[in-house]
């Protein structure tokens, strides 16, 4: 496995910011701290989960908080920064707007999964109730299957559990996404 460096984490964030028209936080100490957190998480879990949120260590549970997380686009659009304030809008970058405080948009049920995800066996020994919750969460995962979604405004297609909050291509809202229901019939 290749070693993960701060440089790599920075390059990836810069490239991503550029692609989507965002900026990285202008405060160098804050930026350094955020990149270090991402690096530690990538080393620990195998993917760069959000440094400001508790990850479960299970990919299926953490998918929505792998940086850049599902909540970044709506948060930058609404507040001018993502939850951790790694990605910011142009106005914040240029100092025309103060660095905002961004409330947590991730639903509490999803946050809760981090407290019962890894090692079911250990959780089972803890409290009876935890066992039930773990089972319920696992069932839920089995039930959420990725689907094909398309943006009615620009035609962007994505394969995931839920449609994105904002279309990464044309910035249309979630409501503009519709599921593609395909049926393949083999005749004759």
């Amino acid at each position: 496995m290749t070693e993960i460096t701060i440089e790599m984490v920075l390059k990836r964030a810069e490239a991503d910011a550029q692609t989507y028209g965002y900026y990285l936080t202008p405060d160098p100490n804050l930026l350094q701290g955020l990149l270090e957190g991402l690096k530690v998480n990538e080393e620990r879990y195998g993917y760069p989960s959000c440094p400001c949120r508790l990850a479960s260590g299970k990919f299926e549970y953490d998918r929505d908080i792998i940086c850049p997380c599902d909540y970044r686009d709506p948060d930058v659009a609404e507040f001018g920064a993502c939850y951790c304030r790694l990605y910011v809008s142009k106005d914040v970058f240029e100092g025309k707007k103060e660095l905002p405080t961004v409330p947590e948009r991730r639903p509490l049920e999803k946050q809760s999964r981090a407290y019962m995800a890894t090692s079911t066996s250990k959780a089972e020994t803890a409290v009876g109730q935890t066992t039930v919750t773990v089972k319920a969460a696992e069932k839920e995962i089995a039930e959420t299957k990725p689907k094909l979604w398309y943006c009615k405004q620009c035609g962007y297609v994505v394969f995931r559990d839920e449609p994105p909050y904002i279309c990464p291509i044309c910035k249309a809202k979630r409501e503009m996404f519709a599921e593609i229901k395909t049926r393949i019939d083999f005749v004759g």
Binding site: L54, E104, S119, K122
Partner: peptide, 21 residues
């Protein structure tokens, strides 16, 4: 530890109403 996380979650959620850091 995993077993502790469940307990902390309860404590934090009861006291603050959320699970933010």
């Amino acid at each position: 530890e995993e077993s502790e996380k469940a307990r902390i979650r309860e404590e934090l959620q009861n006291k603050s109403g959320g699970l933010s850091y």
